[in-house]
Computed example of a mutant assay.
Amino acid sequence: MGANLFMIFWVLAISGFSSGQVLNCVDTQADSFCAAKQTAGFCSLQYYQDQYCSKTCNPRCATARGDPPPLTSSNVTNLINDVIKSSFGNVTTFKSSIMASILAIQNLVDQIKLQLQPVVRVDCVTQDKNIWAGKYLALCPANCNNLTIASLKLWGFIVYTGDSRICQAAIHSGTLNATGGLVKIEKTTGVQKYFGNTRNGLTSLSSTFYPSSFQVKPAV
């Protein structure tokens, strides 16, 4: 008999929870206190686990009132996915948008850095060792590959000696063509050996140690 009564009570309790009906709380005073605390903002979504409510609220009453379920990692994940889908359509589109934003920000940072670098107007015979800046933009004139205008003084490849001519190194490396233009120069420390070769109509020579070096890179 006792077991049957227990089963009846259990079925009624489950029915009450699923239908959203308000159950009669065992301690109506405590339940009212908890509801007031929740309204006042003292209790979180999982308020019956909150320090203000855990000892005073009846979780069964909270469930019957239709209060929000406890906040779990699964709920948070679902909430985030719902927000992403409503804003971007799907997670893949969201990731693509984030990557595009990161690339745009990086491009903006690069542009700002570029604006902060000094611009040096050079000629076909200017050597890097005569420029004080560690990083700078060099504005080369046209026809620096014409050896009747400037004799070839060029040692190395990729990394050039500090006494190499900047614009000739820019053409040799392929960063610049004969029409001239803007290139970025970055000074580096000297190396023990520089290897020459022929590229883009100019031949650089090999060299032993030189105390300073530079590299030529695109301006943007």
Rank of each mutant, 00 (worst) to 15 (best):
K55A: 11
F6I: 07
N75Y: 14
K55V: 09
V159A: 10
I80W: 03
N90L: 07
V216K: 03
Y48T: 04
I171C: 02
C124V: 04
I102L: 08
Y194D: 02
K217V: 03
L114N: 14
G180R: 02
V109K: 12
C57N: 07
K153Y: 10
S54R: 12
V76Y: 12
F214Q: 05
T92V: 15
T28C: 11
N177V: 02
L154T: 07
L205Y: 05
L108E: 13
D50Q: 05
T198R: 01
M7C: 11
N24R: 12
N200S: 04
A133F: 06
T77R: 14
N177E: 03
N197V: 07
V119Y: 02
C140W: 03
P218R: 08
Y136M: 05
D31L: 15
P69I: 13
G201H: 01
D67T: 13
L108I: 12
D82P: 07
F94H: 06
L45F: 01
F9M: 08
S213L: 00
L71G: 15
P70G: 07
A35S: 11
F88T: 04
W155R: 00
N130F: 09
F157K: 10
L147W: 01
S213P: 05
G66P: 02
G201A: 00
G181I: 01
P211D: 01
T56R: 05
A35Y: 06
S204H: 01
S73N: 14
I158F: 06
T126Y: 00
A104M: 00
W155F: 10
A3D: 15
C53S: 13
Y48H: 10
K217M: 09
L116C: 06
L176Y: 01
G20Q: 08
T148K: 06
K217C: 06
G180I: 02
D31E: 13
T39D: 13
V91T: 14
S15Q: 08
T72H: 11
